[in-house]
């Protein structure tokens, strides 16, 4: 059992932060890795990125968005409650190097996994420019935290309710035009956003890392549910990733595979709500 020491509602009913007691995971995790979480006996194993960790306290922070039944049920838990299973750290750590100028792009809940990578990047001596995108001001998370680990933070909202108006790619294009050499772009967020970022950077030849979130079951390389195609090779995102060279990903396949259980997920939600399930999914917040 893994106790939730702290719960913080970042966005009402939509984005939740848990600080969870998991000393073994905390002692060995690194930025870019994830955990598999199961709420209770009937629960799914769901992958969530390690958004922060404290080795001394033995805690891991996860931030999740309520998109379906599992995350909705998890959102009802309170500090003091226990998650039944919490396994990790899984996946490859982010590659942290001193490169020069790095742009970190986080969209929606993707800001959570961007945060520890930005911190490592700045500690490694990079200039870190962070672009945070949200549909609207209320959905923006971790602004203060990101400021602490970035040389500069640019915020953009779809509806212009905060920061600049528009999409992260517009800001990115400006930076490319105005700032000179950019050594790396790291983009995490909705698939459509990551793909759009990759289209921009590919044209100008800037290396781009994205973190994929395909459907997973075990997260340890045992099932192949998380297969994706990178440069025509099949990879298991849970062991070979989740970060990959964004320019080599077969996005069409990745998008289609993420819909494999769409009908069943809907059914679970309907069942759960007993009538017309409300989808609060904001995964398409960054429309292309």
């Amino acid at each position: 059992m893994y106790q939730i020491l702290k719960k913080q509602v970042l966005v009402n009913d939509l984005m939740i932060l848990f600080e969870v007691k998991a000393p073994l995971v905390a002692s060995s995790c690194q930025a870019g890795q994830f955990v598999m979480v199961r709420k209770d006996e009937v629960g799914e194993r769901i992958p969530l990125t390690i958004a922060d960790f404290d080795r001394e306290k033995g805690t891991i922070t996860i931030i999740f968005q309520v998109v379906g039944k599992s995350t909705e049920l998890m959102a009802t838990m309170e500090a003091g409650d226990c998650l039944l299973d919490f396994a990790g750290p899984l996946g490859q750590p982010s590659n942290i190097e001193r490169l020069g100028r790095v742009i970190m792009i986080g969209g929606g809940v993707g800001v959570a996994p961007i945060h520890p990578i930005a911190r490592e990047m700045i500690l490694a001596g990079n200039e870190v420019i962070s672009i945070l995108g949200a549909r609207t001001h209320d959905l923006l998370i971790l602004e203060e935290e990101m400021k602490k680990v970035s040389s500069e933070v640019i915020i953009t909202t779809d509806d212009g309710s905060y920061g600049r108006t528009g999409m992260v790619t517009e800001v990115l294009k400006e930076l490319i035009n105005e700032r000179g050499k950019i050594d790396l772009v790291v983009a995490i967020g909705p698939m459509i956003m990551m793909q759009a970022v990759c289209e921009v950077t590919e044209k100008v030849g800037i290396s781009t890392v994205v973190s994929l979130n395909p459907i997973m079951v075990d997260g340890t390389g045992m099932c192949g549910a998380c297969r994706i195609e990178v440069g025509n090779n099949t990879k298991f995102a849970c062991v070979d990733g989740p970060e990959f060279d964004g320019h080599k990903i077969n996005w069409t396949l990745a998008r289609q595979r993420s819909l494999m259980f769409a009908e069943e997920e809907k059914l679970a939600m309907l069942e759960h709500h007993n009538e017309g399930g409300v989808c609060r999914c904001s995964c398409h917040q960054q429309k292309n």
Binding site: V42, F261, E264, A268
Partner: peptide, 17 residues
Amino acid sequence: TRVNLMKGYRFPEYLTP
């Protein structure tokens, strides 16, 4: 694994489809 370990044959009582 979906069927046995996660008891997918009892979906949606068990959440794994």
